[in-house]
Nucleic acid binder design. Structure first.
Lengths: 136, 136
DNA sequence: ACGAACATGATAACCATTATCATCTTGTCA
DNA sequence: TGACAAGATGATAATGGTTATCATGTTCGT
């Protein structure tokens, strides 16, 4: 199963500015909601190869400039995010996601790690539900 | 993206008892934690085809007898439903996982959903760190 | 026991994501 | 500025989990 292994392709020592970086970065910023790599690629229509879209999205995630979420169908959805830490409230029907902050969760994570003698690295927390629009 | 489309293969009008049902059902009950279809298939070593394991797991989910979760690597993990709800404290180095319960997280999830007018379905929360053994 | 509806197995098909590798680009240093 | 090493890109093949197909074996009401 392996909950936390990601790509092993070596990361460059220094990142450079490039056409792809800008295109993907800008496109992602213009999307308010989560988008998949495929959607973004379609959005950039022929301006950038699919593989490059994936690479740049991963770079953004690695740089802490984008969030990812797994959809029910197994795809990875990306969204530009301000670097501050937060969680998500996601609608199972329409996929709408709200960024939420929760100090209680932060302190819970810290306390839990401490209680077991763990050196804290991070935590994830997401709430799933059906949004008001989709209920009616 | 499509967050909520699942298999469209028509569902039988009546379910029957069968070897596969029992094997998968029992194996899943004996696992306290989430397991993937592949793990379960390996666990049943040659007693049941992979496709059948998938089908029976899906049937259990449809019948409300199993929960599913997407792992970071995109796999679907299944768990027998009666298992009580809890979270995990996971070591990034050795993979050790501690089950933890946290009432504060439960109430936070409920409150967050309510605040946005969402009908709560569920939530996930995991803490990552380095365990004492791996620190030293 | 018969037969229609189910279930299973082996395997091909799907599809999102990754890896490969030859070919540009970028940025640095002489 | 020119050369070059480290990055970045594109086209495409490869991966790998999951689903569809279809011929064949089971189940169960009658």
């Amino acid at each position: 199963m392996n909950i936390s292994q990601h790509s092993v392709t070596s990361t460059p020592d220094t990142a450079r500015s490039s056409r792809g970086r800008q295109l993907v970065g800008n496109a992602l910023q213009q999307c308010r909601e989560f988008v998949t790599a495929q959607q973004l690629h379609a959005m950039l229509d022929q301006q950038l190869g699919l593989a490059t879209v994936y690479r740049n999205l991963q770079a953004l995630v690695a740089a802490g400039k984008a969030d990812t979420v797994r959809t029910d169908s197994g795809e990875v959805a990306y969204r530009h995010c301000s670097t501050e830490h937060h969680h998500h409230l996601i609608c199972r029907d329409c996929g709408t996601a709200n960024e939420i902050t929760a100090e209680s969760v932060e302190s819970w994570a810290a306390a839990t790690a401490a209680q077991y003698g763990y050196q804290l690295i991070g935590h994830t927390a997401e709430v799933y539900g059906v949004c008001p629009q989709c209920i009616s």
